[in-house]
Write a protein that binds this DNA or RNA. Structure first.
Length: 258
DNA sequence: ATGGTGGCCTTGCCA
């Protein structure tokens, strides 16, 4: 089973690239973030013609997450089931696909350390942990994937000196991210390449970042241990960051022997 | 070619 996470930065703008990529890479499950679509604008029928069931959770101009699956899509839900009320944004969707509980998540950016949005980001990660505590056990096969907007280690950004005092690398964000992992999830790409630097999934459009290899590793396929036992390979498709009208994120793929 | 934002119900905001 090939599971993919990809922040597409507007599905409307990215649809040609997404369709082309699906035809070439044939994932079983594609989790997208930042679709920037309302639910009624999501091209569900186009994906159905390609053999994919789908669930989308969107609000229109910002955010928006989706799961596509050709190995079944059951028990879908949106947001958090943690008893704390609805989230202000459309940032997470859940579904069971081929026996794996999958979540497609778009964690808040935070904007600036100390900003109201930064506190929302930390609270959001805490709610995600609470949702896991209340709805799942680490023994299940779980793939929690998406754009976490956190670089867990200094080597996960191209130059840590540039990020001094910035979001994505602050201690509180990293602790909140680690708290998710400590529940019982493994960062699959880092687990497969423990010694590697330069493993990035995002390159800002500005200042020629991609060409300069000025990237960040902020997208993840987090796997429970029982699912990790089935992991064959995990990789970033940097080619998808090239060419005409790319997203600023590359897809992250993992193949499991399921 | 030796450089270099993009998306959005756009004219500022978000990333």
């Amino acid at each position: 089973m090939r599971i993919v996470t990809w922040n597409v930065n507007s599905l409307k703008a990215r649809m040609p690239r997404v369709v082309e990529w699906l035809e070439i890479m044939n994932p079983d499950v594609l989790c997208m973030q930042e679709t920037k679509l309302a639910d009624d604008a999501f091209p569900k029928e186009s994906f159905e013609k390609m053999g994919y069931e789908s669930i989308h959770h969107g609000e229109g101009r910002w955010n928006g997450v989706a799961i596509l699956s050709r190995v079944g899509l059951e028990d879908s839900s949106t947001g958090f089931d943690d008893g704390a009320g609805p989230d202000q944004d459309a940032r997470i969707v859940w579904a069971t696909c081929g026996g794996v509980r999958v979540a497609s998540a778009y964690i808040p950016n935070g904007r600036e350390v100390g900003h109201e949005h930064y506190h929302y980001k930390l609270a959001w990660l805490n709610r995600l942990r609470a949702h896991l505590d209340q709805n799942h056990t680490p023994e299940e096969k779980i793939a929690l994937v998406g754009d976490f907007n956190v670089a867990p280690e200094d080597r996960d950004v191209w130059d840590i000196k540039v990020f001094e005092g910035a979001t994505h690398v602050s201690a509180l964000e990293r602790e909140a991210f680690k708290d998710i992992l400590d529940w019982g999830l493994v960062d699959t790409l880092r687990n497969s390449y423990p010694e590697s630097d330069g493993l990035y999934t995002f390159w800002d459009y500005r200042q020629g970042s991609f060409y300069k290899r000025h990237g960040m590793r902020i997208d993840f396929i987090l796997s429970s241990v029982s699912l990790l036992e089935e992991l064959e390979v995990v990789m970033v498709d940097r080619n998808a960051r090239k060419g005409e009208k790319p997203s600023d994120h590359a897809p992250l793929l993992a193949d499991f022997s399921l």
